[in-house]
Amino acid sequence: MAEIGQIVDKVRSKNAGPFWVTIDIFCGSPEAFRRVSEGVSTERVAGLFRTDPAGMKRFDIPALNVVKFSLPRPQVQGTRFDRDMHGAAWAALVAEMDVN
């Protein structure tokens, strides 16, 4: 077991417009890509964000060794309930997930 952040190059999250957030896991190697792609279910990521996995998009891109998740923002960007205007901090939740 290891934290995702410890076995990949970088986990990045950003707004994709005001209504979506996208999370890119740059695995850095085919081996790390395999561990993340096989070891992280969409349901687990949905659980972190308390969202419906059916409403998420997932892309496993071996050519880049990237696993990407997109989901509707937990709060629309910049409403009074939003805590992170650019959506970059959510990456930490994914980086701190355990993976086999």
Binding site: K14, N15, W20, T22, K57, L64, K68
Partner: peptide, 16 residues
């Protein structure tokens, strides 16, 4: 090729 392809990920909910 990697940096150009990877830029399609940036701030896009769908990279394709």
């Amino acid at each position: 090729p990697h940096t150009v392809y990877a830029h399609m990920l940036y701030e896009n909910s769908d990279p394709f």
